[in-house]
């Protein structure tokens, strides 16, 4: 992206009288065309969003209006009691839980990597490392799924055992740990790896944009490198870090394939991260049930998809609100 203004060489303007060039120059035509083009792009995104919403609502409507008893009768996997909310509840819980674990593991790691790249590593190493992290994003999620279920799930067992043994008194790590570890904990770890590239990339860019002036202000007060990061870099990057984390959260919430391949599903409101057969996420559940679902089943699944859509929107709005709350103190003014 170049910020240098393109300057037309002198004399390159076709010979127009001043009056002509002021009214209908070629530049103004290009200008208007570009304005329309960018407006059209802006409208497209709104139209797409509206189309998806309308699709979800229309398709989900039958599942919401049909009585729970009838749904339970027509769909083999629909719960006898609780209705549609009772069905979606544990899924929402599982989705949020898996995404939250991913975020808790992924964000600090990503911030660490980004700080290393932007402020610690020698320039050449930093470039290489940045490239490698971007490469993580290029791995298809089905490959992460394979890796998670075949490589990580058996090997993470000792870690889970250790957690269950020493932190088992804490409900989150209640044992016995599942073997192989087809648990929401393993899913969280894999999702953390998957959201690492986007969070790292955004954080790195934000850290690199810290105004030199602010870093020098801290240095001149006698700040060590850590203190420069604490007083100048992180406060400046705060809203960027939140945005990055939310982008990662969005990806973790919607991740389907990896979860489907690793997690042994269950429909409980359970905080036992180390036990299998307790959780399921909305996206993985849709992928799991969709191929053999009948009309009512598809409608129910789409209703759960609508819920996921709303959650993701809410998360994004929350992030924006968090960012704007301290706008006065941001680096922008």
């Amino acid at each position: 992206m170049s910020l240098t203004p393109t300057r037309r060489p002198e004399g390159a303007e076709p010979s127009l009288t001043p009056a002509e060039s002021m009214t209908h120059g070629r530049a103004s035509l290009a200008n208007r065309a570009f304005a329309r083009l960018s407006t059209a792009s802006g409208v497209t995104i709104l139209a797409l969003l509206a189309a998806v919403t309308v699709f979800l609502v229309i398709e989900a409507l039958p599942a919401v209006t049909t009585s729970p008893a009838e749904l339970a009768e027509r769909i083999s996997w629909f719960p006898e009691t609780g209705g549609i909310l009772g069905y979606v509840g544990p899924l929402v819980f599982g989705t949020l839980l898996a995404a939250l674990i991913a975020l808790l593991i992924g964000t600090p790691l990503a911030i660490g990597i980004a700080l290393f790249i932007s402020h610690y590593a020698p320039r050449r190493l930093a470039q290489g490392l940045g490239y490698l992290v971007d490469l993580l994003a290029a791995i298809p999620s089905v490959v992460y799924g394979l890796w998670g279920s075949l490589v990580l799930a058996p090997r993470i067992v000792p870690v889970q055992d250790l957690l269950a043994q020493y932190l088992g008194w804490f409900p989150l790590f209640d044992g016995p740990a599942a073997q192989p570890a087809r648990t929401v904990f393993t899913v969280g770890v894999v999702l953390a790896v998957m959201i690492l590239p986007i969070i790292t990339a955004v954080c790195r860019e934000v850290f690199l944009q810290t105004p030199r002036l602010h870093e020098e202000a801290a240095l001149a007060l006698g700040a060590t490198r850590l203190e420069v990061i604490r007083t100048a870099v992180l406060p400046f990057a705060r809203s960027g870090i939140i945005s990055a984390a939310m982008l990662g959260l969005g990806r973790a919430l919607g991740e389907t394939m990896a979860v489907l391949m690793i997690l042994s599903p269950g429909f409980a409101y359970s905080f036992a991260l180390l036990q299998a057969g307790q959780h399921q996420t909305i996206a993985a559940n849709i992928a799991n049930q969709f191929p053999e679902a009948n009309t009512a089943g598809v409608s129910t699944l789409i209703a759960t998809g609508l819920v996921l859509f709303v959650i993701t929107l809410a998360v994004n709005m929350l992030a924006r609100w968090v960012v704007s709350r301290r706008a006065d103190f941001s680096g922008a003014n």
């Binding site: 002036l213 602010h214 202000a217 007083t231 406060p235 400046f236 705060r238 103190f329």
Partner: peptide, 13 residues
């Protein structure tokens, strides 16, 4: 101590 060409108070403080 040092004072710079452009004023640089920490914007987040």
């Amino acid at each position: 101590g040092m004072v710079f060409q452009r004023p640089n108070p920490f914007p987040t403080m």
